[in-house]
Design a protein around this nucleic acid. Structure first.
Length: 241
DNA sequence: CGGGTTTGACCGGCGC
DNA sequence: GCGCCGGTCAAACCCG
């Protein structure tokens, strides 16, 4: 799962990204100064800071992440909480959280879709198929777009992009976002009935720093064995929005 | 062969 | 209204 063989995940301390990085101006990071054997975090105490939408998400809607940055045997773990502060950032906790307030949430649909067939199908029924497929796709897209799961993110200094948080992820997309030289990767939890997603990207100004954004909450336990030290460490590190 | 990754296309949202 | 951009899809590809 871990794509790289060696990496030192170190604590990022007191970082403040004040200029636009990956379209994320004025990010500020709360210092975490105590190196811990494992990274864990508890974003739950921060719901109130998320505004109305967050208030609508009960505590349980936030992802529980026994993040286990087990790198190189003796990890120096650290994570910087990222604080919501910008007004015009494309960073998710700004517009997207506010969008959450505006959009009603409906269930997502997961059907197979035949997007690529819509333009190439032949025969007398092709137009009908086109329409139905297109309509289905549209419906699906709309349903998908309206759903906004609770999110939080953190920053780590790591050589690897994908941190071992105990869950199994499948990459479903990669995108180069504007004004960045590093692509953003999109991952989805491979567990059935679990729609937790995460985005991983690197800071443009400091490629050693990895920004991981989780969306949603796992409806299951981590996919591989945990020693639970992450949970224990959760009491030692708190994450902030 | 099954599961994961890559990658180009597509879509909706949003700003101008 | 239009174009840009981020997010997602899914076929093709890769790998064990």
């Amino acid at each position: 799962m871990f794509p790289s063989t060696s990496s030192a995940v170190v604590l990022s301390q007191g970082l403040v990204a004040s200029q636009e990085t990956m379209g994320t101006p004025h990010m500020s990071f709360t210092p975490q100064t105590s190196p811990l054997p494992h990274l864990a975090f508890s974003p739950y105490g921060l719901q109130h800071s998320l505004g109305g939408d967050a208030a609508s998400h009960p505590r349980e809607t936030l992802p529980s992440l026994p993040l286990k940055l087990r790198v190189g045997g003796s990890p120096q773990i650290g994570a910087s909480a990222v604080q919501r502060s910008s007004s015009n950032s494309p960073w998710p906790w700004n517009e997207e959280w506010s969008l959450n307030n505006k959009r009603s949430s409906v269930g997502e649909e997961h059907h197979s879709n035949n997007r690529n067939n819509s333009g190439t199908s032949n025969g007398p029924s092709s137009s009908i198929n086109c329409l139905s497929v297109s309509a289905l796709r549209m419906k699906k897209m709309k349903a998908r777009r309206k759903v906004r799961e609770p999110r939080f993110c953190f920053k780590t200094m790591s050589e690897v992009d994908v941190l071992d948080d105990g869950y199994k992820w499948r990459k479903y997309g990669q995108k180069v976002v504007k004004n960045t030289q590093h692509p953003r990767s999109y991952y989805r939890c491979t567990q059935d009935n679990c729609r937790v997603k995460k985005r991983v990207e690197r800071l443009a100004e400091d490629p050693r720093m990895v920004i991981t954004t989780y969306e949603g909450r796992h409806a299951h336990s981590p996919s591989h064995d945990e020693d639970d030290t992450g949970a224990a460490a959760a009491s030692q590190i708190s994450f902030f929005w």
